[in-house]
Amino acid sequence: MAKMIAVLLASVLPSALSRLGEAPRNATGPSPEDLLPGGAARRAEYWENATLRWNVDPSLSELQTMRRRAGYDHLATTTRYGDTCCASCGSIDTARLVEGTGFYAVASAESMQDYGIGDGHYCTSDASGHRGTQGMGCLSCAKGKFLPAHPFSYPLWAQPNAGIFRRELKIVVADTCPHSGNEAWCPGHEGHANKFGVKHHFDFANPPAKYDNYYFVWSKIECPRRLKRRYAEMSRC
């Protein structure tokens, strides 16, 4: 009886996790908790000597080829962190900022921002764009697509032809991903790459369904007037 129960649980658990919106994991990959703010996989130490956790196929060169073929200017790694009431771009509410706009709110890496006040992360502008880092400060917008690839050794959650990889997304920067506490993902200075060799990173407040830390190819765009007006009304910057 115990053996039968174990078999039933093994068959039911993966589908249950999928219904809950969580990608299946194996023993070699970081857990969802590891990847959230404050989690172990946010820090560089987690990835030291972790060859089973870190996938180098496709290579960085292959990822850049995929980016060019998709027609975008830049490559980024991605994580998720959850909506917040008081993001660094003027204590803005990330969910309210993008509600009904079709945009996704993100935090961009510290290296992509500059000229902030206070601790340097509040009400930032674009970094200068030197040494291969594209500036993306507060109220910067971009369009792009997720690639069917992530830095981990476990298989993709979504199929390579899934909608999440075909759909073009639009994002707006509402927050900062500071280097401290996110050393593996968010570079602290222009021209520096993260643990995965990529100079850009976006931390999605609330990514689309089937998201699983996929690479993101993107180009900067002008933010629409509607979003600019809402930002001006909500932000303290």
Score class of each variant (00 low, 15 high):
residue 1 M to S: 15
residue 2 A to M: 09
residue 2 A to W: 11
residue 2 A to I: 14
residue 3 K to W: 10
residue 3 K to S: 11
residue 4 M to D: 15
residue 6 A to V: 11
residue 6 A to C: 09
residue 7 V to I: 08
residue 8 L to A: 15
residue 8 L to V: 14
residue 12 V to M: 14
residue 15 S to P: 07
residue 17 L to Y: 10
residue 21 G to N: 01
residue 22 E to F: 14
residue 24 P to E: 13
residue 25 R to Y: 00
residue 28 T to C: 10
residue 30 P to G: 10
residue 34 D to C: 12
residue 34 D to V: 09
residue 35 L to Q: 13
residue 36 L to P: 06
residue 38 G to I: 12
residue 38 G to A: 12
residue 39 G to Q: 04
residue 41 A to D: 08
residue 41 A to K: 09
residue 43 R to P: 12
residue 44 A to W: 14
residue 45 E to Y: 14
residue 47 W to K: 04
residue 50 A to P: 02
residue 50 A to I: 03
residue 52 L to E: 14
residue 53 R to Q: 04
residue 54 W to G: 00
residue 56 V to S: 12
residue 56 V to H: 15
residue 57 D to W: 00
residue 58 P to C: 04
residue 60 L to K: 07
residue 64 Q to P: 00
residue 66 M to S: 09
residue 69 R to K: 13
residue 70 A to G: 01
residue 70 A to M: 07
residue 71 G to I: 11
residue 72 Y to I: 00
residue 74 H to K: 10
residue 74 H to M: 08
residue 75 L to D: 04
residue 79 T to P: 02
residue 81 Y to C: 13
residue 83 D to F: 12
residue 84 T to R: 13
residue 84 T to V: 12
residue 84 T to E: 14
residue 84 T to C: 09
residue 86 C to G: 14
residue 86 C to P: 09
residue 87 A to L: 07
residue 88 S to E: 12
residue 89 C to V: 07
residue 90 G to T: 08
residue 90 G to V: 06
residue 98 V to L: 02
residue 99 E to K: 11
residue 100 G to T: 02
residue 100 G to L: 05
residue 101 T to K: 03
residue 103 F to A: 02
residue 107 A to K: 01
residue 107 A to L: 04
residue 111 S to K: 04
residue 111 S to A: 15
residue 111 S to N: 07
residue 112 M to T: 06
residue 112 M to W: 05
residue 114 D to N: 11
residue 115 Y to W: 09
residue 116 G to Y: 07
residue 118 G to K: 08
residue 119 D to K: 02
residue 119 D to G: 09
residue 125 S to W: 06
residue 126 D to A: 12
residue 126 D to H: 10
residue 126 D to W: 10
residue 132 G to H: 01
residue 133 T to S: 08
residue 133 T to E: 05
residue 134 Q to E: 13
residue 135 G to M: 03
residue 136 M to S: 05
residue 139 L to S: 00
residue 143 K to Y: 07
residue 144 G to E: 00
residue 146 F to P: 00
residue 146 F to R: 01
residue 149 A to M: 02
residue 150 H to E: 02
residue 151 P to M: 01
residue 154 Y to F: 11
residue 154 Y to D: 12
residue 155 P to D: 04
residue 157 W to F: 11
residue 159 Q to S: 06
residue 162 A to H: 13
residue 165 F to E: 10
residue 168 E to W: 14
residue 169 L to F: 15
residue 170 K to I: 08
residue 170 K to N: 14
residue 172 V to A: 02
residue 172 V to K: 07
residue 173 V to E: 09
residue 176 T to L: 08
residue 177 C to G: 01
residue 178 P to E: 05
residue 180 S to I: 08
residue 181 G to K: 01
residue 183 E to I: 02
residue 183 E to T: 12
residue 183 E to L: 01
residue 186 C to Q: 00
residue 190 E to K: 02
residue 191 G to H: 02
residue 192 H to K: 06
residue 193 A to L: 05
residue 195 K to W: 15
residue 196 F to Q: 15
residue 196 F to N: 14
residue 198 V to T: 08
residue 198 V to N: 04
residue 199 K to P: 03
residue 200 H to V: 05
residue 203 D to R: 09
residue 203 D to N: 14
residue 204 F to D: 10
residue 208 P to S: 06
residue 208 P to D: 02
residue 210 K to H: 11
residue 217 V to I: 03
residue 221 I to W: 03
residue 221 I to R: 02
residue 222 E to W: 03
residue 228 K to I: 13
residue 229 R to N: 07
residue 229 R to T: 13
residue 230 R to D: 11
residue 231 Y to D: 04
residue 232 A to T: 11
residue 237 C to R: 07
